[in-house]
Amino acid sequence: MKTNAVMIASALAAALALAGTASAQEAKTEKCYGIVKAGKNDCQTATSSCAGTAKRDGQKDAWLAVPAGTCAKIVGASLTPGK
């Protein structure tokens, strides 16, 4: 443990020396830049305008058919197990 502790202390000293020169590290960080902002969730006090009185859970399994989004554009061998 003693060796370990000394090693950590010296790594900390080295890290302090690195401070301010971490621009290569910084470049690896990717930001959402406001993309999330547009999708923020507001808690509301209003009733959804489409709430209405109609029963909406009659066909509750109809959606199970097929996903219809951009997953068609995701390709790769890991989608076909057994190959």
């Binding site: 509750k60 219809a68 989004g69 951009t70």
Partner: peptide
């Protein structure tokens, strides 16, 4: 939601 579409997501 983008990947599976609105209807599937709602399910």
């Amino acid at each position: 939601e983008r990947l599976v579409g609105e209807r599937f997501f709602a399910g």
